[in-house]
Design a protein around this nucleic acid. Sequence first.
DNA 1: TATAGACTCTATAGTTACTATAGGGTCAAG
DNA 2: CTTGACCCTATAGTAACTATAGAGTCTATA
Lengths: 130, 130
Amino acid sequence: MKIGQLSKVSGCSIQTIRYYEKEGLLKLPNRSEGNFRLYDEKALQELEFVKHCRSLDIPLSDIKTLLELKNKPEESCSSINNLITNQLKMVNKRIKELNALKSELQLMKKACSLTGNTVEACGIMTSLNS
Amino acid sequence: MKIGQLSKVSGCSIQTIRYYEKEGLLKLPNRSEGNFRLYDEKALQELEFVKHCRSLDIPLSDIKTLLELKNKPEESCSSINNLITNQLKMVNKRIKELNALKSELQLMKKACSLTGNTVEACGIMTSLNS
DNA sequence: TATAGACTCTATAGTTACTATAGGGTCAAG
DNA sequence: CTTGACCCTATAGTAACTATAGAGTCTATA
């Protein structure tokens, strides 16, 4: 199939597919006589793999690592485990940050609804200035 | 004070200060004879305001809006409230996404530790391929 | 005065992961 | 043949920084 079809089937934009190819995440596909990219089922699976990883916020560089490991079935999977562990750690960190952020924003909202309704008297502005 | 001092006092890098000035978040400062930027207490406060907003993940374009409103004390603060409400909504959304992501990563970790220890037999890889 | 090191300047490019656009080629149907 | 959909590469843009290059300023010291 051509790139437009792959895009539709995978839900990944044409430009992103080309980007992934350029970044080395996807193999160079065969080409038609007109130089159109030609993809098979295997290519679709690789793209789905990459997309799945992206949905986990795994950076492209790490996805590359995973793809390389995929080609070494006998290799120990400890590095995969480490990668996921690290990713989980970062996600936890980010959740924590966002919860703190959320708390502050909620306090601000409360500050606004309890005071007057001009910028000068706005509890949000006062809070942002502190 | 000069930019290096402002950077130290505010915890904001020199380059970021210049970036904020270029993006219109900070006013053009006075200059010395040698063309060095000169900042007063007011400028420091404005920078702290911007930094505080950034710590809330508020995008620069919205911060600009807030700064403009800051100069209109009589104006209604409803737009400020809307801005914070919207920001809160996005933060909640992101928290939700990250929690879903966390769950999947945790399942993966479990899958790995319960199976063998090669890439081929790795529950994480299996999961990423699905 | 000269020098050296710290500081400052502007311009430009790079980071990450896309996303859009320009200008041109391919292909199939009418 | 024409037209419109699809495809190609190259380049630039997005957001928010961050780094680097090359040159100027300033101050303390010899």
